[in-house]
């Protein structure tokens, strides 16, 4: 990769290159080379993320190929049982997928309305001073370690739900970690949406105010639609975070693969399964070991689908202020 770097020669401020003698001062040649080296270093840094992504994909795909040599892809996608560690092993991803979608669904049901409302408030209503006070608290939610959220779900939210709403709720369930994931991703949803709303030009708000609109009407009927693509990006980010969340569900959801659509039941998610197996002592190359790569690949494809969907939405509602 280093060998490619000197290809990037645009934007050289000295304009001449090493042979540009007409303009050269003492040291011009040295400056030209140091610029090249810095540029190459920057390019390398930018390329590293691409390289790492490709490397991860390579590992996931190659190990998954080994997995799918043993388990047919049809069984993987249609079998309703996930029992990889039994003698009579079954590898149906559906129960894990259901657990993942259910916990993320509950999380989004919490995070989207609250995140969006707080973004609207902070962007359109809050006085600068109020905003300065509220924002750090909101952002602090994102800084709490997820393991703390996990115990919060297990030891605080679940008992609370048992006492007030669902007396029969089992100690491990999807609902409680789902709610807590929701709280965790509020700051992501709200700060990305808020940025999009604040980017809406003042002229649009003035136009609406000049027609006699109230602040609520301006926020809901003008700012929100104008910021739609950014809001869609916020949803996608929230969804990716929720789908990928591991610790909270591993601690509070029960780690039992369970094909259900009822969030009150215990279940396992893809991430919880991966962490469970990865921490065990499975022999390298065994089918149980390989199964976590197939599960990981599924997870990655899922987030990819959400990101592409968000990208399409963004293009569909592209702003051109």
């Amino acid at each position: 990769m280093v060998a490619e770097a000197p290809v990037v020669t645009h934007g050289s401020p000295s304009g001449g290159g090493p042979r540009g003698r007409g303009l050269s001062r003492p040291g011009a040649r040295l400056r030209w080379w140091s610029e090249r080296v810095i540029e190459a270093g920057l390019l390398l840094a930018a390329l590293s993320s691409i390289g790492i992504t490709i490397a991860i994909l390579y590992v996931l795909v190659s190990e998954s190929v080994a997995f799918f040599r043993v388990v047919s892809i049809v069984d993987f996608l249609t079998d309703t049982m996930w029992m990889p560690l039994f003698d009579d092993a079954r590898f149906g991803i559906l129960p894990l997928l259901a657990g993942t979608l259910l916990s993320s669904g509950v999380g989004l049901a919490v995070a989207v309305p609250i995140g969006l409302t707080s973004a609207l408030y902070l962007s359109e209503f809050a006085a600068p001073r109020t905003r300065e006070i509220i924002k750090p608290f909101l952002e602090m939610l994102a800084g709490v370690p997820t393991v703390v959220y996990g115990y919060f779900a297990l030891l605080f939210v679940t008992p609370l739900l048992q006492r007030w709403l669902f007396p029969d709720l089992p100690g491990f369930n999807i609902l409680s970690p789902g709610l807590v994931i929701g709280i965790m991703i509020i700051p992501y949803v709200s700060s990305v949406s808020e940025d999009a709303m604040r980017a809406v030009p003042m002229e649009l708000r003035e136009a609406a105010f000049a027609m006699g609109a109230t602040r609520v009407e301006v926020a809901v009927r003008v700012v929100l639609p104008a910021a739609l693509s950014g809001v869609a990006a916020a949803f996608a980010l929230g969804m990716s975070r929720a789908v990928g969340e591991t610790m909270v569900v591993a601690i509070a959801a029960g780690q039992q693969p369970n094909l259900t659509l009822d969030p009150r039941e215990p279940a396992a998610t893809i991430t919880a399964y991966i962490v469970q197996v990865a921490l065990g002592d499975l022999p390298h190359g065994s089918i149980g070991y390989l199964s976590i790569f197939a599960a990981g690949l599924t997870l990655m494809l899922m987030t990819l689908v959400f990101n592409v969907a968000a990208w399409l939405l963004r293009r569909r509602f592209r702003e051109a202020y």
């Binding site: 030009p201 136009a207 000049a210 639609p225 104008a226 509602f317």
Partner: peptide, 10 residues
Amino acid sequence: MVFQKPNPFP
């Protein structure tokens, strides 16, 4: 009121 820059709503 009509403004300097055309500002139709999205």
